[in-house]
Simulated assay, not measured.
Amino acid sequence: MLLFFAILGINLCFGQTVKVKSDSTKFNKIVFENTSSFQFDGTKPIGKGWDILEKQFSDNQFVAWGEYHNSKQLSQLSSYVLEAASKNGFKNWCVETSPFVAKELKQISRTKNPVDSIIKLSKDKGKYGTFPFFRTKEDAEMLVVANKYNYNIWGIDQEYQMAFTYVINKAFHLQSPNFKARYQAVYDSLIAKWWMPKVKLLDSLKKGITQPELKAALEDIKISRTIYYEDNNLMRATLMKKNFYQYYDHTKDKNKKVFFKLGANHLAKGQNLSTHLYDLGNAVFELSQHNQTNFANVFFLNRYYITEKGELIDDLEDPDGEYPKEFLKLYQKDQWVVVDMRPLRVRYKNDKTLSEATYQIMDKYDFIVVSPEVMK
Rank of each mutant, 00 (worst) to 15 (best):
K180T: 10
Y128H: 02
S176W: 05
F164D: 04
S189E: 13
I156E: 00
T353R: 08
A357E: 10
Y278T: 07
N113A: 12
M235I: 11
Q76E: 11
R110V: 05
L218A: 11
P319H: 05
A64Y: 06
E67T: 06
T353Y: 05
D188Y: 02
D124L: 08
I119D: 03
Q211P: 00
D51C: 01
A217M: 08
E326R: 02
I118Y: 01
Y245S: 09
Q184H: 08
N255G: 05
F179K: 03
L239N: 03
N150S: 15
Q332R: 12
T358G: 08
Q211C: 03
F285N: 14
R110E: 15
D314K: 06
G321H: 04
D315T: 12
K148V: 07
T35N: 04
K309S: 15
V81S: 12
D315K: 11
D314T: 07
K91V: 14
A192W: 01
E286T: 15
F100S: 02
E83S: 11
S274P: 00
L8V: 10
E219A: 02
L202I: 15
V145D: 02
T97E: 07
S176V: 03
V199F: 09
Y228L: 14
L82H: 02
A102T: 04
A296Q: 06
N282G: 12
L205V: 10
N282E: 15
F38A: 10
L2M: 09
F164S: 04
H266A: 04
F62T: 06
T165Q: 06
P343I: 00
I118W: 09
L201Y: 04
S78R: 02
I227V: 15
K206W: 00
L214S: 08
E308N: 12
T130M: 10
G155A: 02
I221W: 03
E141P: 03
E104V: 12
D157P: 00
V81H: 06
M1A: 14
K123M: 09
V115D: 05
T35A: 05
K241G: 03
F300C: 00
Y359F: 15
Y183M: 15
S22R: 03
D23Q: 01
M196N: 13
L312R: 14
F90G: 01
A192V: 02
F295G: 09
R182F: 04
D157G: 12
A283F: 06
D340F: 03
L354Q: 09
P45I: 10
N92M: 09
M142K: 05
V101C: 09
L202G: 13
K72S: 11
S189H: 10
K193A: 15
K333N: 12
E286Q: 12
N265P: 05
A140Q: 01
V115M: 11
Q211I: 13
E96F: 04
D116C: 00
F133G: 05
N169H: 09
V370I: 12
